[in-house]
Design a protein around this nucleic acid. Structure first.
Lengths: 216, 216
DNA sequence: CTTAAAATTTAAATATCTTTTACATTATAT
DNA sequence: ATATAATGTAAAAGATATTTAAATTTTAAG
């Protein structure tokens, strides 16, 4: 709630900026222009400058942007200056893969707890993450002060589990199920629907101009 | 290229409509109003009506929409009237999970070929999908006439693999790597960036109104 | 059968959000 | 000093979403 409200479209590009700035930093670059960035991430340079300008004056006219300055700025904005623990619910096929997915490699996020119904999983550690039974969701989330949850349960129990998660006082759900969840006001849900992604891609392929090569 | 160009925002909602219509059908419903649909999928009823109207007259005034009619219509539009084979490249952690992900459950899409560098994977079958060595990408994609590829390789080889895929004449790439690919005109890339998704969710949680509960 | 009421689509207008354009301004380097 | 390069931002254009206002159709009552 610090700075004035930024357009959603801009907000969704912030992680992208942040990652590429880090890549530039690792490559030893200490300054960058909006045009260079534009080329790397396929976002128009004017859009980038417009985006940045919402946060004030981040660059220098005639010079460009100082890579380290930008990184520091976005690190703070994106909460990457401190570790964020998230939980994963549903250690099935996809859940298991996400437990082993190294979010921590290019972000300061890690999964610190997982939950499942399968007795074979419960009380084991997978991908370095302890797996608890489902009936401990509320207790563990509260104890570990986790406010974001990745939901990879079967669709038919998704709503039910979402209800429990809501009780635990969670603020955000990354929903991989194909169900559109009903949650109380105050909880944000972002949906990642793999089947939809493929269908949309296929639709765009034969209904939109071939010359376009970008998503969204 | 059949009907006049539809807004991108609308196109991205089509798979969602399609899935919910099928759920309604399976539940024995044979008619539905835009308001009922709106409630289920969390899209404003006016937006739904507007979306549908791009395709002509799909509903009946004073009555609503015939579920089966709509399903038939969208099935065709979304190419769900015939099987679409896609390939997956990179049978690592995430790739393996996607091989076992049942796309075919609620779509007419299936992964029919996979590719990997690991000798332990090559020539095995995982999730019912045969795994070939990387040097067969062009040959197999052409032979199987596959035009859509799921890319789950490590980021450092993503661009290189994308180049091969382009050579094979593919039209679309669902890119799970954190790299923004450079591809020739004619190929669509849709990005699914899991780390970005989490970071964006976290950003929205503490910078946007708590009352909002929807994504995008 | 008729008619009135209720429900629903649809076109058009309006509002909101996003991207692009265009250029004044400023820093750097020669 | 001067030319060059690059930002920042206002304003225009474009895209999307929402609202308004009919027009149409179904349903049900008389």
């Amino acid at each position: 709630m610090t700075e004035t409200k930024i357009p959603r479209a801009t907000a969704k590009r912030l992680p992208l900026y942040y990652r590429y700035l880090n890549i530039l930093h690792d490559g030893g670059k200490d300054r960058v222009s909006s045009n260079e960035l534009a080329e790397a991430i396929h976002v128009d340079s004017a859009t980038i400058r417009r985006d940045f300008s919402y946060f004030g004056t981040l660059g220098k006219r005639g010079y460009g942007y100082d890579v380290d300055d930008l990184i520091e700025f976005f690190k703070n904005i994106l909460h990457q200056d401190r570790l964020t623990n998230v939980a994963l619910i549903g250690v099935g096929n996809l859940g298991h893969a996400l437990l082993n997915f190294n979010f921590h490699q290019d972000s300061n996020i890690r999964i610190s707890a997982a939950f499942d119904t399968n007795p074979k999983n419960i009380n084991t550690i997978q991908g370095g993450v302890p797996i608890y039974p489902m009936d401990q969701i509320v207790a563990q989330l509260k104890e570990q002060q986790i406010s974001v949850v990745i939901l990879t349960v079967p669709s038919n129990v998704a709503q039910e589990v979402a209800n429990q998660v809501a009780q635990a006082g969670v603020n955000g759900i990354l929903n991989f199920t194909s169900i559109r969840l009903n949650v109380p006001a105050g909880i944000r849900v972002h949906n990642v629907d793999l089947t939809n992604e493929l269908q949309t891609l296929i639709y765009f392929i034969d209904h939109y101009d071939k010359k376009s090569d970008e998503d969204e």
